[in-house]
Design a protein around this nucleic acid. Sequence first.
DNA 1: GGAGCTATGTATAAGAT
DNA 2: TATCTTATACATAGCTC
Lengths: 236, 236
Amino acid sequence: MVRKKLIVKKIENPSSLQVTYCKRRDGIIKKASELAVLCDTDVGLVMFSPTGRLTSFASNGRIEDVFLRYIDRPNELRGGCVLKMFLILFTLGEELHDLNQLEAEMQQKMRSYNPDIEKITSIYDALVHQKFLTNAIQRIEEMKAKLLGKQIVPLEPDSIEVGKEKESQSSEVPVLDIKDSNFMAEKSVDSNGRRNPVMEDHHLQRTRSLGGPHLSFDYLKTQSNWNLQCGSTSQG
Amino acid sequence: MVRKKLIVKKIENPSSLQVTYCKRRDGIIKKASELAVLCDTDVGLVMFSPTGRLTSFASNGRIEDVFLRYIDRPNELRGGCVLKMFLILFTLGEELHDLNQLEAEMQQKMRSYNPDIEKITSIYDALVHQKFLTNAIQRIEEMKAKLLGKQIVPLEPDSIEVGKEKESQSSEVPVLDIKDSNFMAEKSVDSNGRRNPVMEDHHLQRTRSLGGPHLSFDYLKTQSNWNLQCGSTSQG
DNA sequence: GGAGCTATGTATAAGAT
DNA sequence: TATCTTATACATAGCTC
């Protein structure tokens, strides 16, 4: 049981490769989270396992925000309009995806309420059913408007009317303690964490909750001078 | 000189914060590159220093490619059309930026050749100068077409007719060669490395060479089934 | 494939330059 | 602010369960 000096070369034995990958992956994530806390910095980390499985870590918020912070560097000239367009498109794309999913779900529900047409024998019956259905459609439309409004309106922060503005951003979230277990499962605590570390092991994370911005918008909202014009892009 | 047990808490002393940041940043990068080699994996790492300075590391190619690999996960439903559009826009944006820069440079050159109009005393003189200038413009246009063609044609290699159909696609785009500062010096890792580690410390890296794809396209080109339709996005 | 162990290689806090 | 030094804390290779 003598530990040998490390030779940096691809490990050929598949099983020890896997074991080493897991151990070192955890080690790096721990280091990254320590760095983030010790030095009050943003750290983003993405690793693809030998089998292609993705593990990502972001010290603060989601890894996408780190990407965007990277892309949106003020000195990065390629930003400008194209970046804005990208952000709009990407955000819209997410919303549309969610809307499609939502609409499909609601239609599914409606279908379960679908009356047997043959049973409708009076104008009144027909009107009742029609009213029910139009109400449902109305609700879908409202949800659409709400979701889209929630996402797009923030460009003009003063004129927004969003359902709930949550203040959650400042909440104290404990720092990740890597040790115990296969990441995601337990985001256990470090006593004095100030931030909101996110670690995702994507084979575990298949479910997405509807309705929230999944990329970029959290970040965008922090960029106070963000606007649609091809103007100055600056940040601290 | 006794090393104390680490307490994971923000370092308040600015100087030791800086020192610790540098040391640990280097340590993480070393770990990341070791992981990449040992386990033959892609690793992407982005760190913002306490002063906002960006350091990124990508075990293979550029960090943007890691981002895109992340974004373009087959299970990530938000991809689809919007991702394609983003990629096109982003790539075009880069190209346009480069073109603008190129054009500005060439106009600068032309200006230095600009004849003193007063000295032109004959139609012949005028024609000579005009010819010279139109040639220069022609060259700019060709360069534009070349650059655009180089980048856009691959989408539909068989059916597109952009300015010039050229075979330059196989041209070697040199991999970014980072200066030999602090980290780079220790890039000795790859003595037997198989890949192409890239590490960027962005305050050092202000210059960009014209003409190469700076984001995404290398990645895109590796995605054989990439196309403009909102079709299947799949990858290993 | 994970969880735990232990001996040992590595990273790094402090201090000095 | 970077680099070197040294003692020590920490990470982890190899092993077992």
